[in-house]
Computed example of a mutant assay.
Amino acid sequence: MIQKLTPMQYKVTQENGTEPPFQNEFWNHKEEGLYVDIVSGEPLFSSLEKYDSGCGWPSFTKSLHNERIQEKRDLSHGMIRTEVRSTEGDSHLGHVFNDGPRDQGGLRYCINSAALRFIPKAELEKEGYGEYKKLFE
């Protein structure tokens, strides 16, 4: 599927890039549904864990499945951060920080919209993600 990625999707997922804050598809997206890896389609995050962190990128308090997220130490840009990648697609997704809502575990998954495809709640069955419908009942 890599050949079908937009230039920004490729830059983010394959070259560890970052899209501009507040100028991306999902930073202020509020519809119920799933966010899946744009490359592999593996389900990564639910809209139920999405919140407005004010950073300009989609933020989530947790992933759907811990085994679908790999964490790697990232020393780029003169910072020490924890990169998050999808397990199956090996897509660069963004970073996880310890400054999220304390009452929800304290994590903030700061994810690039370009690494994600959104599946609306009403289309979960049609898109092959029917098992996740129960999350929204």
Rank of each mutant, 00 (worst) to 15 (best):
K133R: 14
E32T: 10
W57Q: 05
R68K: 15
K126L: 08
T87P: 12
N98Q: 07
R68H: 14
G100I: 03
G78M: 12
K133H: 11
P20W: 00
S53R: 00
G33L: 07
K30N: 13
F60I: 07
D99A: 12
C55P: 12
P7C: 15
V84K: 07
G105K: 03
H95L: 09
Y132G: 11
A115N: 04
A122M: 11
N24G: 13
K134Q: 15
E25K: 14
M8V: 13
S53C: 10
S86K: 05
E127Y: 04
E15P: 07
S46T: 06
S86G: 10
I69F: 12
Q3A: 11
F136K: 11
S47V: 02
V12H: 05
Y129A: 02
G105C: 03
T61L: 09
P58V: 07
G105P: 03
G56H: 03
S59T: 07
Q14M: 10
S76E: 00
G17S: 10
E31D: 15
L124K: 05
T87C: 14
N66F: 12
N112C: 00
I2Q: 07
F136H: 09
E123S: 01
T13C: 15
Y10S: 15
L48V: 13
K133E: 08
E71A: 13
S63N: 14
Y129N: 00
F26I: 11
S47A: 15
Y51P: 02
R73G: 13
T61H: 06
S46D: 08
I111K: 01
H29E: 10
Y129L: 03
G89P: 14
F22N: 15
M8R: 12
R102Y: 00
R81V: 05
L34N: 02
G128F: 02
Y51S: 05
H92S: 13
R102T: 00
